[in-house]
């Protein structure tokens, strides 16, 4: 028994594991915060697009020896601008525009990685590997996530009004354009951070699933954010912990945990869950009979 406990506590005795766990938790929390908004506006795929578009930026940063976050960040901004430009100049729908821009940039990233194969391990970008994260990357990721979290905590209500009813937001004197720019800048930055923990393929889950789960559990936006962040933090922390025993694949574990919790909410949520709905329908038919 004590042996089992000792075994379970092993991850906490390694510095790199401790680092991985709290960095994951921080990133998971801030991504979950953003997910509360993305999901509501039907912008969920934007997170995915950004994550993939960032790949060439990261590759370029490695090649030039610059901090990866800078390359990623510029690629993210480039992607947002590209999407906006194509959308304004054509009649294409949003999904087509997003698809066009992100696959183009992703392909460019793969191309760069195959031309300069030693410069960058594309697998690190696509799959992420928090367990092997370098110290200077920890600083970058923690700074991005920490600052984003602080900004979101300050402006969450203004963003809520802006996304709910932009005309009203303007009528109370909010600068809605600035707020949206801030939001998407934070999203780009946090996608970069999440790249390190779960990789480009799974970032989408980090910025959708916690918000979607919380949406099933409450009708109050404030609570939705709290639930979402709690889910993001706990699944990311536990995911990093569990991945020690599974030898890597942190992203896979984190996202699997998040999906499991979503399924639980999907069935058992007190108001919007499947079982609750069935129970209400049953009660209604009985009352009618």
């Amino acid at each position: 028994m004590t042996e089992l406990v000792a075994e379970l506590l092993v991850p906490f005795s390694y510095n790199y594991m401790l680092k991985a766990m709290w960095v994951s938790a921080l990133v998971g929390g801030v991504c979950a915060f953003l997910s509360a908004y993305l999901m509501l506006k039907g912008w969920s795929l934007m997170g995915d697009a950004l994550a993939h578009s960032i790949v060439p930026g990261v590759a370029a940063a490695y090649i030039l020896g610059a901090p990866f976050a800078i390359g990623a960040f510029f690629a993210g901004i480039l992607a947002s601008l590209g999407m906006n430009f194509v959308k304004q100049q054509t009649r294409l729908r949003e999904d087509a525009v997003i698809g066009l821009v992100f696959t183009t940039l992703f392909a460019l990233g793969l191309l760069m990685a195959s031309i300069w194969p030693t410069a960058v391990s594309i697998q690190t970008i696509v799959l992420g590997n928090i367990l092997a994260i370098a110290d200077e990357d920890v600083v970058q990721v923690a700074a991005i996530a920490g600052v984003s979290l602080a900004i979101m905590a300050l402006i969450w209500k203004d963003l809520m009004v802006t996304f709910f009813d932009e005309s009203h937001a303007r009528s109370i004197g909010l600068n809605t354009t600035l707020l949206k720019v801030i939001f998407f800048t934070l999203l780009s930055a946090c996608t970069v951070a999440a790249l390190q923990t779960v990789g480009a393929c799974l970032v989408i889950a980090m910025v959708v699933t916690p918000g979607a789960t919380a949406y099933l559990l409450t009708d109050r936006f404030g609570r939705l954010i709290i639930i979402s962040v709690a889910l993001g933090v706990s699944t990311s922390f536990v995911g990093a912990y569990v991945s020690y025993f599974l030898d890597g694949a942190t992203g896979g574990v984190i996202v699997t945990l998040q999906t499991l919790l979503f399924l639980v909410a999907f069935y058992f949520a007190p108001k919007h869950g499947l079982i609750a709905a069935r129970r209400r329908r049953l009660a209604a038919t009985e009352a009618a009979a």
Partner: peptide, 27 residues
């Protein structure tokens, strides 16, 4: 103050009636 046309509102947004009215006070 602006009272929008019904078609312009996202009725699935997770906010309660009192929260919407409170938004009037934000300014």
């Amino acid at each position: 103050a602006y009272v929008p046309q019904s078609e312009d509102v996202d009725w699935n947004f997770p906010v309660l009636v009192e929260t919407v009215v409170m938004m009037g006070r934000y300014g």
